[in-house]
């Protein structure tokens, strides 16, 4: 079971690694940028899957950490600190801190209350972003690409791509090791039956809080990369529909699987990119109404697509049964 997961993951990642050379051969550098964006959201989706798929914590405010990571880079850049060796640690620390604080409070609740309190926290940050007049408020502000002391040049599309790729691989490796550790077993156990885990003497609240913080931190990295990709930071990155989209990526790809969120991010973003074009090609003038098709597709995925895209590659859905 697990071996198949890793196999799918390796093949998938190998395909991602091939994007820049292929784009070079076909002289279509645009695709390097496009897939870099996909991988950034894939990191966010992988991080959400850690708590959502494995931990059963339905966080509806995950975009908040993209915002935190992005603003960390943007604000430092605003003050002339473009050094990535400063920016990334700050982004990571900020996201970790915010996730810890949010987690401390949200994890006291369960079920729908948890969904809504995470949404409320994300909304708070969203409105905070809008009010940061110094940093562009609703208009957002430019962020220049991080500098890594000449080691990597992020203004080069291919180098930027492979940096994102490295982070994605790291996120997958960390997630894989976490869920197969004792820690992961407790988190997964708490999802299945929290009381039982507590009765066995595990302080599940603390374990869940740790998982929640790790997920937020990982997503903060995605945010820092997103600011670099976009060369721009705005509250829009934290809009509640963005949190919804990350959730959709996880479900669409296969919740509770390692590579599922990556497949989901790829699927959803490609669909968003090409659905309008397909519709326009089919019936002229319908392209701008693509959401009328997108909506039912999402519903169909929920109703019929058990296990998501990953299930197409493997017989069973999640590896946690």
């Amino acid at each position: 079971m697990d071996r198949r997961q890793i196999l799918v993951a390796v093949i998938g990642l190998a395909l991602f690694a091939l994007v820049p050379p292929l784009a070079g051969i076909f002289d279509q550098p645009f695709y390097v940028d496009m897939f870099a964006r996909i991988m950034i959201f894939a990191i966010a989706a992988v991080s959400l899957d850690l708590i959502l798929g494995y931990g059963g914590m339905v966080s509806f405010g995950h975009a908040a950490y993209i915002g935190v990571g992005a603003y960390a880079v943007g604000i430092l850049s605003y003050y002339g600190i473009d050094n990535g060796f400063v920016q990334f640690p700050v982004a990571i620390a900020a996201a970790a801190l915010i996730a810890l604080v949010f987690g401390l409070m949200s994890l006291r609740t369960t079920g729908v209350y948890f969904i809504m309190i995470t949404l409320a926290f994300a909304q708070m940050l969203y409105f905070l972003g809008i009010s940061l007049e110094e940093f562009g408020g609703d208009d957002g502000m430019p962020a220049y690409r991080s500098e890594f002391a000449g080691l990597i040049d992020l203004t080069d599309a291919d180098q930027f791509y492979y940096l994102v790729f490295a982070f994605l691989v790291a996120a997958l490796v960390v997630t894989h090791r976490l869920i197969h550790s004792r820690f992961g077993a407790v988190v997964r156990g708490a999802k299945a039956n929290e009381r039982r885990m507590q009765a066995m003497g595990f302080p599940t609240y603390r374990y869940k809080l740790a998982a929640f913080t790790i997920a937020g931190t990982m997503c903060g990295i995605a945010g820092a990369l997103f600011a670099n990709w976009n060369e721009f930071v705005s509250p829009d990155a934290m809009h509640w529909t963005r949190s919804g989209e990350i959730m959709i990526m996880v479900i669409m790809g296969g919740m509770g699987t390692l590579i599922g969120p990556v497949l989901g991010a790829t699927g959803l973003l490609l669909l968003e990119e090409y659905l309008p074009e397909w519709m326009e090609a089919l019936i002229a003038g319908t392209g701008e109404h693509w959401m009328v098709v997108m909506g039912p597709i999402l519903i169909a995925i929920v109703l019929f697509g058990r296990g998501g895209i990953y299930a197409l590659f493997a017989r069973r859905g999640g590896d946690d049964g």
Binding site: V58, V112, G244, M247, I248, I251, M255, V292, G295, L298
Partner: peptide, 19 residues
Amino acid sequence: RNHLDQVLATFGLILFFNE
């Protein structure tokens, strides 16, 4: 279905209705 499925399916409904 669980809450997660409900959130997503009705999110899809929002897109559909608005459009």
